[in-house]
Write a protein that binds this DNA or RNA. Structure first.
Lengths: 149, 149
DNA sequence: TATTGTTATACTCTATAACTATA
DNA sequence: TATAGTTATAGAGTATAACAATA
C-alpha cells in the first residue's frame, strides 16, 4: 500500500498536532498562573479591561468570545477577589460598568508576565525565527487579518 | 506604556491562535466528513484499525488517548453502522476483538480522502513550504519525537 | 419591543466508580 | 487479585430559555 493511500494515524493529523500543542501550552500556562490566583479566562478579562479602561459585561463577552451568561460567573469570581469592580452605568442603568481595581492591575502585571514566560519557554525549542514564522502562519490559519502585532 | 509591557490581548496570544486554528480546522473537517456518516473520532478508530488489523477495546483506547469507557460508545456507533465488528477473543474471553468490516474499509477510504482534502484546503493559504514548516514546528511543540512522517 | 444582567436549565464531552465475567 | 467490557454517575465547560429591570 503506497504511503499516500494509507490513512493518517492520529499522531500525523494536523488537527491532533494543533490540539496537543494547545493542550500542552494550556497546562504550562495554568501552572504558571496558579500562584497568581487567576486562570486563563480571568487573565484575559483583566487584559481586555486594561486595554479598554471600562466595558459593560456584554461588551466584554463580545471581545472575549463567550456568552454573556458565561461572563457573569467570570466577573463574579474576579469581583470576589477584589480584582475588578462593578457599578451601574448612570447613563444606562441596565448596564454594569466593569473596571480594574488597583489590586486587579497589580495581579494583571504579575500574571501576564508569568503567562508570557510560559509561552516563551513553550516556544524555546523552536528558535526565534521558527517561532515567529509559526505565529505568522497561525495568524493566517486562524483567520487573523491584522497585519502585524 | 511600552509595547512589551502592555498585556497581550486575546487575539495576540499563542494559545488563542492554536485554539482558533484548531477549531476552524475541526469545523472544516466535520463538514467534509458529514456526508460519510462518521465524525473525527470515528474516523480515527477506523484508521487505527486499518493500521493494526485488529485490536481489543482497551488497546484502541490507549492508541487514541481516550478512556476505555469512552471507547464503548464509539465502537457501539460504528458497529450500529456496520463499519466495525466485535467478537470475543477465543484466547481471552474478557477481550473484544474489533475489526474493520468491508463497509468500514470502504467508508475509511472515502472519509479519509475527504479529511485530507479539508486539511489541504485549510493549509492552502500558506503555500507548500510554509505549511510543511508549520507541521514540523507543531511536531516539536506537541512533543512528537518521530523524525519525519 | 429590545437589551442588560441574572438565574435555572440543558447539553456535550469525558472521566471516575461500580458491576459482571473472565483470567 | 487483576483485567476487559459495560453501565451509571458526576464533573467541567458552555450554551439556551426565561425573568426582572430598564430603555
Amino acid at each position: 500500500m503506497p504511503d499516500h493511500d494509507r490513512p493518517s494515524l492520529p499522531e500525523d493529523r494536523l488537527g491532533q498536532l494543533l490540539k496537543r500543542a494547545q493542550a500542552k501550552l494550556a497546562r504550562a500556562s495554568a501552572e504558571a498562573l496558579a500562584p497568581h490566583g487567576v486562570d486563563g479566562h480571568e487573565l484575559t478579562v483583566l487584559a481586555v479591561l486594561s486595554d479598554a479602561a471600562s466595558l459593560s459585561q456584554v461588551e466584554m463577552a463580545g471581545r472575549i468570545g463567550v456568552d454573556r451568561t458565561t461572563m457573569v460567573a467570570l466577573i463574579d469570581g474576579l469581583e470576589d477577589q477584589g480584582l475588578v469592580a462593578r457599578r451601574r452605568s448612570p447613563w444606562d442603568r441596565r448596564k454594569n460598568i466593569v473596571e480594574l481595581t488597583v489590586a486587579g492591575q497589580d495581579c494583571l502585571s504579575r500574571a501576564e508576565q508569568a503567562r508570557r514566560g510560559a509561552e516563551r519557554r513553550f516556544l524555546a525549542p523552536l528558535g526565534e525565527e521558527t517561532a515567529a514564522s509559526l505565529v505568522r502562519a497561525l495568524r493566517v490559519l486562524a483567520g487573523e487579518e491584522r497585519a502585524h502585532g
